[in-house]
């Protein structure tokens, strides 16, 4: 008992097994990168449609952006393979930032300028 100076944290670790596997194969990464490149191409193409999509253009662009964001976070930043805590901490920051700044812009009637 007296020589137990090293804490054994195993019994408080949540979901320890999940993290043993370390990321995907290089092939997966290349595929993800190709997918991201294609998405970017779509985005640029959408922005050149000269408003053919009308008000949906922004929506399409924002959706593509969100897909790219999540892809990089999940695959390149290993969030898919790491423990859930990392994901929670990071997306908590993303969500707080989005809500707070969207709220701020809302007080300026940014989202509905004709109510100004």
């Amino acid at each position: 008992m007296s020589d137990q100076t090293i804490p054994n944290y195993q019994h408080v670790a949540d979901g320890g097994d999940a993290a043993v596997e370390h990321g995907a194969s290089d092939r997966t990464y290349v595929m993800v990168a190709l997918f991201l490149a294609v998405m970017t191409a779509f985005e640029v193409a959408t922005s050149y449609t000269k408003k053919a999509l009308g008000p949906f253009e922004d929506l399409v662009l924002l959706t593509l952006m969100a897909i790219k964001f999540v892809c990089v976070a999940l695959y390149f930043m290993h969030l898919k393979y790491d423990q859930a805590l990392c994901k929670r901490v990071f997306f908590f920051g993303v969500v707080v930032a989005s809500l707070v700044y969207c709220g701020m812009l809302a007080t300026f009637h940014y989202w509905a300028p004709h109510f100004r």
Binding site: A19, V89, F90, V94
Partner: peptide, 22 residues
Amino acid sequence: GLSPDTSTGISHSKLGMWIFLA
């Protein structure tokens, strides 16, 4: 990827970096 000497199994540096990025 698993640090047995932390409560969560995530190393300090990695957790710290995630917190900074958030």
